[in-house]
Design a protein around this nucleic acid. Sequence first.
DNA 1: CTGACTGCAAACGTTTTGCACGGTA
DNA 2: TACCGTGCAAAACGTTTGCAGTCAG
Lengths: 133, 133
Amino acid sequence: MTESTLLLKEHHLKATPQRIKIISMIEEHGHITIEDLYKEMLEQFPSVSLATIYKNINQMAQSGLIREIKIPKAKSVFELIKEPHLHIVCDSCGKIEDIPVETENIIKEAEKLSGYKINESFVTLRGTCPECR
Amino acid sequence: MTESTLLLKEHHLKATPQRIKIISMIEEHGHITIEDLYKEMLEQFPSVSLATIYKNINQMAQSGLIREIKIPKAKSVFELIKEPHLHIVCDSCGKIEDIPVETENIIKEAEKLSGYKINESFVTLRGTCPECR
DNA sequence: CTGACTGCAAACGTTTTGCACGGTA
DNA sequence: TACCGTGCAAAACGTTTGCAGTCAG
């Protein structure tokens, strides 16, 4: 029983070979676009359909297993839902990394200023990574 | 000479009636989707084309006059580029507001942790607005 | 065994493109 | 006047849907 299979079972989704592959690819890459998911999937499942990928991605997002991250001026990527973190995108090579930065202070501040009850925060930074500098 | 006309001139774009209208609508609404822009524009320019709106929005974004804000689980909105601020979206009514929260601390922290040189930050929060609570 | 999942093809909504006409500087 | 912007129609894209066959539980 693989890790991906377990994740699927926990979210009450049938563990088909396609789904297992999708999850392990997201896990492996950290973040991945639909396009890359499809390309890489074709190597192992030559007749896989884009429709299948979309259907599964949508279901997994619905079940709270994965989440779509919209990136300014770039394609969306998908990631497994884990601990809160923020994203940083390299302007030069496009790489996306997670960073475990605490956003509590900002949220508290925003709640005070806005009067909103805040449920979730999405933070994306853009800059230049150490390798591209 | 209107404010919108000035903004266009500053960015070396010809001040056509359609462009002036687009900018004044973004200014008026703060944030607006392409769809709403088009609908409202039709009232004043019954034969305006969606193609014209897309072409202009893309040019204005390219010139640094406006910016696209991608919202989780919702349509993108466009805003004039002004002082840094973050966005908060109401889960219940969908309203989007700007909040002038300082993000310097988070950025410093992220730079330290990641080794990146950070150029810009995008922060979107979701929650419930005072009216919807 | 049965309902859920897959792959295919067609449909859909959004965004882009090419072109002839019209308007701004 | 020269060039850029507009509107129209068609095309290109990304995503979704319906359906018949297949598979996981």
